[in-house]
Computed example of a mutant assay.
Amino acid sequence: MTLEAAAPVAPAPLDVKRISAISLDLDDTLWPVWPAIERAERVLHAWLVKEAPKTAELLVTPGILRELREATAKERSDLAHDLSALRRESIRTALRRAGEDPALADPAFDAFFAQRQRVELYDDALPALKWLSERYPLVAISNGNADIHLTGVGRWFRTAFNARAFGSGKPHAPIFRAAAASVGLLPRDVLHVGDDAALDVVGALNAGMQAAWLVRDERPWEHDSRPQLIVPNLHALCVALEAG
């Protein structure tokens, strides 16, 4: 990986010498999430057309899927941290509303989930993961239901944390602290990198980590606390770390 690009502007001092590990968000950090979700939803609909045609017809109605998701999330607040369970239960609700077997929710979700893992990484992701993993232990922290092994990036990570398995997610401090502890470190020794200003950056800062905001488009920073680094891509992150 060539590191000739100029280092990005750092709005607050980044203490590179303090960094002994890096935690990374997954969706919209290593790959764009919506193409994967949209493809998985098309596969789910095709599965329903074959196995539960009344439900498939119901879900064609504009807005109905969002309505079902919102209703499920409201009724099952205990599943707020578990996107897989929420989606499975929204499918089950749709099956019931259409008068079809709610037990089909499990295989229907399986069809969705398999496709959801078929992500297309940003061009800078694999070179950066290789470069970073040769220098730091990497830990994944995600609120989503992507699996590092099924998506093909598992080889670069020491371990991974997601909100479903952990029981709570970002921006709450426990998942960040657990990620640091998993590689034998305190949060202050870890740099967290992610695209979401509130969930990733503010969450990591509040947990005691340094934070890098990965912003691939033009968005203003709208929070009081500020990241130690703002980068437009993962290549720039590597440049900044190399320069430090």
Rank of each mutant, 00 (worst) to 15 (best):
D217K: 12
A111S: 13
L86Q: 13
T93R: 12
E100M: 09
P187C: 02
P11I: 11
R88L: 11
V215R: 06
T93L: 13
L79W: 07
T151Y: 07
A198D: 11
P8V: 10
A243M: 08
I175C: 02
D124A: 08
A52P: 03
I64K: 15
D15H: 13
T159Y: 05
G167M: 06
K130P: 02
L79Y: 05
A46Y: 09
E120D: 15
L185Q: 06
W213R: 00
S133P: 06
A108I: 06
L30S: 01
R164I: 03
P8M: 10
D196Q: 08
P127T: 10
V190S: 02
L150E: 08
A140I: 07
D106T: 14
V33I: 14
T93C: 06
H149E: 14
E38R: 13
G154V: 14
L138R: 03
V60K: 15
K17W: 10
L237A: 05
I148A: 03
P174F: 03
K54H: 13
V231Y: 00
T93S: 10
D147G: 10
V153R: 02
G144D: 12
E242T: 10
R18V: 10
E57I: 05
L234Q: 00
D27R: 01
H172S: 09
R39L: 11
A179G: 13
A114G: 09
W131I: 02
H223V: 10
W221A: 07
R87C: 04
A178I: 02
F113H: 15
V231R: 00
E218V: 14
L191S: 01
I175F: 00
L44P: 02
C238R: 01
R216P: 01
G63D: 09
L104W: 09
D110C: 10
E100S: 09
R226A: 11
R18K: 15
D189Y: 04
S90H: 04
P102V: 11
I141V: 15
P171M: 04
R87A: 01
V239M: 03
A80P: 01
P53K: 06
S84I: 01
A5V: 12
V190K: 00
D147N: 15
T151A: 14
V16Q: 08
L95S: 04
L138C: 09
R42A: 13
F176E: 00
E70W: 08
A128Y: 03
A211D: 02
R219F: 05
E75M: 09
R118A: 15
D82K: 04
I22L: 13
H81W: 09
L104C: 08
P107I: 10
G99E: 06
V193T: 03
L234T: 01
F166I: 05
D101W: 08
E41V: 08
L138Y: 06
R66M: 11
E67S: 12
K54C: 05
Q210S: 03
A73H: 09
D123M: 07
V190F: 02
G208L: 07
A5S: 14
V215N: 08
F166A: 03
T2E: 13
G169Y: 00
P62A: 12
F176A: 03
V201K: 00
A71Y: 07
E100F: 12
E41K: 04
P8G: 10
L104V: 11
D27F: 04
L68Q: 04
A108Q: 04
F176G: 03
A198V: 14
W221I: 08
P102C: 11
P107G: 07
R135T: 11
